[in-house]
Design a protein around this nucleic acid. Structure first.
Lengths: 162, 162
DNA sequence: ACAAGAACGTTGATTGGTCAACTAATCTGC
DNA sequence: GCAGATTAGTTGACCAATCAACGTTCTTGT
């Protein structure tokens, strides 16, 4: 029994660990925590705040961007987007103006401060992505991406429920 | 400009999609939603409730299991575990008794109802895992597991933060 | 034996994520 | 042009996840 407890305690013998989704969730949570920690240190931002700034900063090749385009592209919940955006506008990092052609839409752009913050943090986060990619081989990366595609497709099927 | 918006709207051109973490998070969220939906249909349980039941049901090869062993093995937050466990005890699916040898620890076991529910849902969830695994090739699975191991290790490093 | 420290579990607070209802504005077909 | 359907964004409600603080109980070192 003691052996059994140890087998569970070290986390390697539990049946749940054979579950792919379990491993995925754990790794994703840790990567998330890492990104959160980095952003708190270098920018004082939460991950979601930064994601919104990154979306705007990346999309603003030519002029302001529509909120709905960002939420759709990133599959971001529009409710949460609306709330987080509000704080970013209040802190002066993002500028939102109503589209004169369509009074429903918000045209978003980074303020000078927001752009500066984006310019400063974007390379850092890109470097992290590169560092993460560098930890796995090219074959693993290709297989990982392919596997993620297939798992994502499978996650949208309904046949698994009896 | 219109082309640019479309490029973003269809979700394939945005730089963020090259981020591995982005893909991981999306896939994980969808798998999570799928599991949640299945469990709601077949058992009326939330995913976290079921995970606790599954942990207890799996670990109870010989006798009741200690709470702390489960939270450690599954890297489950003990605060959340405590709260969710409380609801499971209240609904009569889990039995918790104080260890007479150590009055701090809770010894957990499934009630008859809990065991019946576990016996009924465990094959379903295992079948889902098998179905998910079947969507990817053996090479992809090995690479995926290996990549997850490496990414998990990388997520615990601090060198990425400047 | 006893003080310092660690482990167990509870609770509170904060944030993230999801879903649904709702208002306001625009588009569509007739 | 006008009624009905769509779309944009806000708000409320709820659950999951993480962190910190705390009381209680055991363990350890001296």
């Amino acid at each position: 029994m003691k052996d059994d407890l140890n087998r569970e305690a070290d986390g390697s013998g539990l049946d749940l660990h054979q579950f792919l989704t379990f491993r995925l969730a754990r790794v994703q949570a840790k990567l998330n925590a890492q990104a959160t920690r980095i952003l708190r240190e270098v920018a004082g931002l939460s991950l979601t705040q930064w994601r919104i700034i990154a979306l705007i900063g990346n999309a603003s090749g030519d002029g302001p961007t529509r909120s709905a385009d960002l939420t759709r592209a990133a599959e971001f919940d529009k409710g949460q987007f609306s709330r987080k955006l509000k704080t970013l506008v209040e802190t002066g990092l993002v500028v939102a103006q109503v589209d004169e052609r369509d009074n429903r839409v918000q045209l978003l752009s980074l303020s000078d401060a927001g752009q500066a913050l984006f310019d400063r943090t974007w390379p850092t986060m890109q470097a992290r992505q590169a560092a993460l990619r560098a930890t796995i081989t090219a074959e693993e990366r290709d297989a990982l991406i392919s596997a993620l595609d297939k798992l994502e497709a499978a996650s949208e099927r309904t046949e698994f429920a009896p």
